[in-house]
Design a protein around this nucleic acid. Sequence first.
DNA 1: GTGGTCTAGACCACA
DNA 2: GTGGTCTAGACCACG
Lengths: 119, 119, 119, 119
Amino acid sequence: MDFDTRIPIYLQIIEKIKKDITLGKLKKGEKLPSVRSMASELKVNVNTIQRVYQELERKGITATQRGKGSFVMEDEEMISKIKDDMAKRLIESFVEGMKELGYGSEGIVKSIHEYMREE
Amino acid sequence: MDFDTRIPIYLQIIEKIKKDITLGKLKKGEKLPSVRSMASELKVNVNTIQRVYQELERKGITATQRGKGSFVMEDEEMISKIKDDMAKRLIESFVEGMKELGYGSEGIVKSIHEYMREE
Amino acid sequence: MDFDTRIPIYLQIIEKIKKDITLGKLKKGEKLPSVRSMASELKVNVNTIQRVYQELERKGITATQRGKGSFVMEDEEMISKIKDDMAKRLIESFVEGMKELGYGSEGIVKSIHEYMREE
Amino acid sequence: MDFDTRIPIYLQIIEKIKKDITLGKLKKGEKLPSVRSMASELKVNVNTIQRVYQELERKGITATQRGKGSFVMEDEEMISKIKDDMAKRLIESFVEGMKELGYGSEGIVKSIHEYMREE
DNA sequence: GTGGTCTAGACCACA
DNA sequence: GTGGTCTAGACCACG
């Protein structure tokens, strides 16, 4: 995993984990790697991962049990909400960026269609 | 002008100026206010405005002439080239992001349409 | 028995046992279940129960006899003395805390009354 | 300021600041000491204070502006809510503790009255 | 000068 | 073995 220097590492890891959950790579109830093993795997400090897990718990995405580990929450609804949220954020920032460049609604839709056709 | 605490003030001001240019409020060749006057008008630190002008110049949007001030670039073609480039990069990263979330081509187009309709 | 993740399991079990003693479910002199049987019954690690018994003994609530097991203490007077002491400490720290929050004597008494009424 | 070893330092500092706000020692809109000055004053690491300010912001008690500092929120209602919350937590844990010791509602009220009279 | 992030390394509480 | 807290010290972004 490569990190974008402009964005805090811990945020990038959070996004990665959320993505893995929505894609089913991490299943409900499954145990996440221990703080230390994930830290060494990603070549990152333990504290950074600890922050990641803390934030995930605060958002209700995982639950942490001292001495046991962190587990993905079993809440189906929550997971689909995460996916919708992430998609919405992507779309918003995309549309906003295009508008700042002077594109109107039709222009944006048209550009996307063109891009898809080329691919 | 009110600022969103979450985003650096200097970025917010840059966006404002870029918008003013595309909307024709600031015309090609026109002189921007001096660093000091803009700073006092927006009730913002002089350093902040200095950074704004620096970034604008770096992006080729304005040109600074020592002792005279900053001026909006006259080079129309260059600006439109930059715009196309930025748009392409925006679209690419957007599509890539959506695919990582598990969306296919149709899903992406559909999401954009839905979002536009809501707005 | 369900456990609250925020509080150490061993503390929750201790409280449960203390309650059982005051309610007479566990009588003076009675033998507590073995570490292993209690652990398997509560689906909890053996170490955890060991710590529970250790703490109970440290507090003088039980006594452990090697090879025989743990027994609820018979010393009634000592237990009631401990209780009075604990109660006094509880009250003191409570009153001190309320005063730090700016409550006067009447305010404290009033708050307690209100809380009791709600319950 | 002395710290109780059993409770995380950052939590103790948070409680201290909340108390100061409810008591009017820290007024609405007022600037909190900088992370570094508070850290050196309390002889605590900078990171620890940073966590304190972060949590306070997350709870809506303060607002932080990068490069400027942290400020107490101007929300009157929020402040009185903090006080009520803190008092409620104190009362709850006190009553719960007394009940575990075998005191009934009348016993608790009586004990408080006695304690107040002695003082 | 101010907050934000990160590292390396330590010690503790819990299961 | 697992998470939680803390320290010392560093570098960066922002005003």
